[in-house]
């Protein structure tokens, strides 16, 4: 850990790497329904980014990537997933039942939008919350984060 913080070049490099990782994580989230990926994978990639940010910048780094308390992310993620579930109950008849809408969007063309993506977003948020929470908790008290 300390090694990472002391080597400025490495630190810069890794810091730069967090941005593409974040983008990649979002890609995985939305691609998941048709290609490998999904909320878990996406959230975990974000988690790796957060870990890197902590390693290079300490708590401040995690706060740069995730501005809120981890509990809020956990609660919000769960809530989003549950709302999707109840929405299925209200509109479709069964809890967690998903709906499919055919949309034609200007940039993407004809797209099938599946409500299950809402559920996956909930998963994603929870996983990001987990990574943030775990790293902040277990990383606390190290007393050696850069100023």
């Amino acid at each position: 850990m300390t090694v990472l913080r002391e080597s400025i070049i490495l630190r810069r490099g890794l810091r730069v790497a967090t941005a593409p990782l974040a983008v990649f994580s979002l890609y995985l989230l939305f691609a998941g329904h048709n290609r490998p990926g999904g909320g878990f994978a996406g959230g975990l990639v974000a988690g790796v980014a957060i870990a890197l940010a902590w390693a290079t910048e300490g708590e401040a780094g995690t706060r740069r990537l995730v501005a809120v308390r981890s509990t809020v992310l956990l609660g919000a993620g769960l809530a989003v997933a549950l709302v999707t579930g109840f929405a299925g109950l209200v509109w479709g008849g069964a809890f967690l039942e998903s709906a499919v809408w055919d949309l034609s969007l200007p940039l993407f063309g004809d797209v099938k939008l599946v409500s299950a993506i809402g559920f996956d977003i909930g998963v994603y948020l929870v996983v990001v919350g987990v990574a943030t929470g775990l790293i902040r908790s277990l990383g606390a008290g190290s007393g050696e984060g850069p100023a």
Binding site: H33, N34, G38, F40, G75, L96, S98, V114, A116, G129
Partner: peptide
Amino acid sequence: AGKNVVNVILVDFRAMDTLGEITVLA
């Protein structure tokens, strides 16, 4: 409407498992 069967299982066919799972995580 999903080509990735594993992901469809996770978020649709057996979404309840996943709901439990993220609860465990949280």
